[in-house]
């Protein structure tokens, strides 16, 4: 069974790195990409071009996005009854205390800082896989609207 993950990230370089890392960690992961906040909301709302997309099992969300930034996206997700049950993981370069606090206040499920070194990044992705996919129980909502 494939696992659907929505990655909201504007840097193509980072997108590719993340894809490569997840591919190495777990081949069953299906990584979808939205490159800004507006696209992310459209994807989650399954609007327009995104009518047939699956509902993600969890979301990897960068904070600094164009158009609608990550914090707004997070707030929107957690205020929406049908979306708030999707675990939303902040994955960003920032390690500023203010960002961390704000994210948790907006009810992010957890906050991760992207390591600078490649191998550390790969290890982090492996940890995400291990924790959120093999250990954590995710709500089975795929069948529900």
């Amino acid at each position: 069974m494939s696992i659907e993950v929505l990655l909201v990230e504007d840097s193509p370089g980072d997108v590719r790195l993340t894809q490569e890392a997840f591919r190495e960690a777990n081949g069953a992961i299906h990584l979808h990409v939205a490159s800004d906040g507006v696209e992310a909301m459209a994807f989650l709302g399954r609007e327009g071009d995104y009518i047939h997309v699956p509902r993600p099992d969890f979301i990897l969300l960068d904070l600094n996005l164009p158009k609608m930034d990550g914090r707004e996206v997070l707030a929107n997700i957690k205020n929406d009854d049908s979306l708030k049950t999707i675990p939303t993981i902040i994955l960003t370069t920032s390690n500023a205390e203010a960002d961390i606090v704000k994210s948790y206040q907006l009810q992010a499920n957890c906050y991760l800082t992207k390591p600078v070194q490649l191998d550390a990044f790969e290890d982090l992705v492996k940890s995400i896989n291990e924790f959120w996919i093999t250990k954590v129980k995710l709500p089975q909502q795929r069948l529900v609207g």
């Binding site: 840097s11 370089g13 980072d14 790195l17 490569e20 370069t93 992207k114 600078v116 070194q117 490649l118 191998d119 990044f121």
Partner: peptide
């Protein structure tokens, strides 16, 4: 400077690997 540098570092490392 960190952001672009991260790209360079990460991809060169990826290449290397």
């Amino acid at each position: 400077l960190q952001e672009p540098l991260r790209m360079v570092a990460s991809y060169t490392q990826l290449l290397s690997k």
